[in-house]
Structure formats: C-alpha cells, structure tokens
Design a protein around this nucleic acid. Structure first.
Ligand SMILES: [Zn+2]
Length: 509
DNA sequence: CATGCCGGGGA
DNA sequence: TCCCCGGCATG
C-alpha cells in the first residue's frame, strides 16, 4: 500500500511540519528557499528578513558588512576612525570619514570630504559605504526607512535625490515589504495576531485567470473505452456544475475571514495551476497524515482516503476502527466561480444563505416553457448552471443523448444500429424519477437577485423525457466486481478497469 | 457504510 | 495513453 501512494504523495507539502518557515522565498529563485533554514537562527532578529530583498550582492558581502548590517538595522555600528561613510547632512547625503565614534552617546564625528568640515551626528545617521541593498528589518520610523531606501542610489549618483524618487522608492519598499509579509504568514495555525490583512488578500488571489470552464472542446471523439464516448460528437456536457449539494454551512464555525488553512498549500504549492473548481464556499476536509495534505470535499471522502491510503484497508482493521477520524480536519475554503460573479459582494463572505425555497423548485429554473426548438444553443461561454447537462440535447435528436450514455453501457460499436432501443430504455428507467424528483440541491452561490442570467439561460433542455439530473447513472450491476471479489488488499489483481475505478471489464454485468 | 464507476486530472 | 482518485449514485 504505501508503495502505491508514495509517488503521489511526493508533491504534497508536509503540511504540518513546515508551516512556519517557508514564506520568504517567493517568486524569485530557489535560492531563497535554500537559505531559509539557516536563517532560522535564534535571536538574529533581523537577519532573515533581508533575504527577501533578493539582492544577490548581499550574500557576498564580507562578514564585516554583515556585522554592520546586523547592528545597523537595530541600532548602531561601531565605526572605525578613518572609515569611509556616508552621512545625511544639510539635506543631502555626504561622504566622509569617520573621525571618531563615541559609543557612549552614540555619536559619530565625521569629516565631510565635500564640505571639508567636521560634524557630529548620531550614529544612526551615518552608514557604511559597503552597506547597500540592505533592507531595514522592520519598521523604522518611516523617515528612517526612507533614508535607507535611497542611500544606495544616491551613493552612485551624487545628485540630490528627488522627492519623487524618494516617494517612489518608498512605495517600492512598501510593496516589497508587503509582498514578503503576505508570503510569510502562511502559517496561520493559531488565529493569533497574524498579519492577516495582506495575507488574505494575497492568498486569495482572485486573479485566477481562468475562464469559464465552458465546453471542454470535446477533444477527439471516439477514444478509449472509458472516458471516450461513442463516435457521435455530442457537445460534451458541461456537467451540472454549480450544483453540488453542500449542506448549509453546517459545522462551519462562523468564523469569518479566518485563514484558509488549506489555501496556502493547495494553492500555492499544489495547484498553482490556473484551473480550478467552481464552487463558492465550502467546508473541506484535510488529511492530516504526515506527508499527505489532501483536501477533500466530503467527509466520507476524507475518511475513505485516510482509511484506504493511510490506515491500510478496511479489512482486518479491527482495532483501528474509525481511527481515521483522527487524521483529518475540516477547513473552509472559498472560491470564486469563474464566470458569474455576484454583483456586488466581491469577496464577501458567503452569508449563510437561507435555504433554497424548496428543493423541488430548485430543479426548475431551467425548464422554462420556452418553445425554442432551434435555438442558438451552445453559447456555452458562460455560467454554469444546472441546465448545462441538458443543454447538450440538441434540438431534435435524442440519439445524441442516448449515445451519450451509451458509452458506458456498451462498447460503442453497435450504437448505430437502433438507437431507439436505448432511448426507450433509458426513458423507461426514468419514470422513477419524475420531473420533480431531482432534489438537485443545486443552489449556486448567492442568488441574491440578479439571478436572471441563469434562469434565462439557454434552455432548450426540455425535451419530454423527464430524466432530470445530469446524465442518468447506470444502475449498478449486481455482479460482484473485482473490488469485492479480491478485496482492496489485492488491488493488483483487479482488472485494470477496476483499478482505475472504471467500469469493470472482467465481471461484466 | 460499502461499492461501482464517471469525470477530471496528472505524468 | 496510462493511471489515479474525488465525488457521487446506489445498494
Ligand atoms: Zn474488474
């Protein structure tokens, strides 16, 4: 068992473990990360932070600089007489030589080369020439920060820095700081006083490009057995997407902003990829197993996951009964459905929306008694909506529909023969589910009021055959399949289909 | 809760 | 392609 998943787990970050450290390295190089660990030194206070400033040159600085740096950040440096330094004097930066440094009062006497005069000022107003690209660790009173900011620049330029420059730099600094900040607090386990402000923003990163999932450009037609569909090209059904049930918030703690426990991981590390699911807010479950950070949508799913992948199989798990309960935790995530955006309520918290009026009604938004037979159909581009699945039914041909499921039922060859059969069959089965039945607990996000789009959607669904609900799922065959026969522990003996969780080939129904 | 397997992905 | 697996429909 372990062997099996090992590879897969690889990529998962060790959630629990790392949390704290990472952060620093963001976009740029891997260098950051490598250094990371070491920076962890105790008491260094400032040091580690400056890594984020990416300046490559920093690293090569001789130790002396570092030393200066370390102190400079906090306070003073020991200036050696004769040392070349820069000092802020008369509204501008001047070069000078250290005359003497009175550690006691923390004053430094500097001989200004330019003005040919000697001044005495605070140590903090003097900085070493080697110093550069050093970021003040924390908050210096802005002024200080500012000064620091342009030191490096003016140093080579020798021009009275412009206000604008200063401002610019300042902003830049701010940005950088923010950036680093936003990355670092990935932590967030304890709702302590984190810098959640920027964090949330950065993480949630709305700019997921992502366009609606839309029609998945079919991609070939007849393809493999599973997954493939019959030759007929039916516009792939979008699948009732926004509908997943989703019990009200349920256990969700009313906590609001609260971190996205999972976000950091899955989003930053796991799937920086553009695509994503389309729900609004959900309660998810995260596997706490050492190296697995899996996050599943359903509690059963997670349990299963833990049980099957981490605890071994169900069988012989006598004493471990329900042990899996200890290996997951629930978390909440929020997501933005690509296409439709609720008017207003940008990132707002999904209020505990009231329950849908009546489940029965819910199913109906689609069947608008519109007599559109040959509509423009498709126009997929936009929002998802339960009708999606049906939309595929082109004006007039059920065959398509039937074909659609056909793939699962049969190999696909004899489809051309007499589609009617299937058609009738499927419908026959349908009766059970009369129109109202589909308790589609759909209910997309807030249906506050501008709901028009969905309702007026494309439509043309209809078609008498009342087989609501996405695509009818094949009734489960009664024959024992590999899984049951061999048991999970002998998965390797299953037929491939079963192994892949596809329709069993070995024990056909 | 256990199964079966579709649909979506990743490599 | 090959392979996996979440989620969901079903017993
Ligand atoms: Zn099988």
């Amino acid at each position: 068992m372990a062997s099996v998943l090992s590879r897969r787990l690889g990529k998962r970050s060790l959630l629990g473990a790392r949390v704290l450290g990472p952060s620093a390295s963001d976009g740029p190089s891997g260098a950051g990360s490598s250094l990371e660990p070491q920076a962890e030194l105790p008491e260094g206070a400032a040091p580690q932070r400056f890594l984020t400033s990416k300046g490559p040159s920093c690293q090569e600085q001789p130790k002396e600089v570092l030393k200066a740096l370390g102190t400079a950040g906090l306070q003073q440096v020991v200036f050696q007489p004769g040392q070349k330094v820069y000092v802020w004097h008369g509204g501008q930066e001047c070069t000078g030589l250290v005359e003497q440094h009175s550690w006691a009062e923390d004053k430094v006497t500097v001989w200004l080369l330019d003005q040919k005069l000697q001044i005495c000022c605070k140590a903090e107003e003097v900085w070493l020439s080697e110093l550069q690209c050093v970021m003040p660790p924390v908050a210096l009173p802005e002024l200080g920060a500012q000064a620091l900011a342009y030191r490096p620049v003016s140093r080579n330029i020798d021009v009275p820095k412009r206000k604008s420059d200063a401002v610019e730099m300042d902003e830049m600094m701010a940005a950088m700081v923010l950036t680093s900040l936003s990355c670092s607090p990935v932590v967030q386990s304890p709702p302590g006083a984190e810098a959640n402000f920027s964090a949330s923003r950065a993480v949630s990163g709305d700019p997921w490009k992502e366009s609606g999932d839309v029609s998945d450009s079919g991609s070939s037609t007849t393809s493999g057995h599973w997954s493939g569909s019959s030759g007929i090209s039916t516009p792939s059904p979008p699948h009732p997407q926004a509908s997943p049930k989703y019990l009200g918030d349920a256990f969700g703690s009313p906590q609001t902003d609260h971190g996205f426990e999972t976000d950091p991981d899955p989003f930053l590390l796991d799937e920086p990829a553009p695509r994503k699911r389309k729900n609004s807010v959900k309660v998810m479950y995260k596997c706490l197993w050492p190296n697995c950070g899996k996050v599943l949508r359903s509690i059963v799913g997670i349990k299963r996951h833990v049980k099957a992948l981490h605890l071994g199989d169900t069988v012989d798990s006598d004493q471990f009964k329900r042990e899996e309960d200890f290996y997951y935790t629930e978390v909440q995530m929020k997501e933005e459905p690509a296409g439709l955006s609720a008017p207003g309520t940008p990132t707002a918290e999904p209020a505990p929306t009231p329950r849908v009026t009546s489940s029965s009604l819910a199913t109906l938004p689609l069947p608008l008694p519109k007599a559109q037979t040959s509509g423009p159909e498709h126009s997929s581009l936009e929002s998802p909506l339960p009708s999606g699945a049906l939309s595929k039914s082109a004006p007039g041909s059920f065959w398509h529909i039937q074909a659609d499921h056909a793939y699962q039922a049969l190999p696909s060859f004899q489809i051309p023969v007499s589609p009617h059969i299937y058609t009738s069959i499927s419908w026959a089965a349908a009766p059970a589910a009369a129109s109202p039945l589909s308790p589609v607990r759909s209910r997309s996000l807030s249906f506050s009021e501008p709901q028009p789009p969905p309702a007026a959607k494309s439509h043309l669904i209809v078609t008498s055959p009342p087989r609501a609900q996405g695509s009818a799922r094949k009734a489960r065959g009664e024959a024992k399949k590999c899984r049951k026969v061999y048991g999970i522990e002998h998965r390797d003996q299953w037929c491939t289909a079963c192994r892949w969780k596809k329709a069993c080939q070995r024990f056909l129904d």
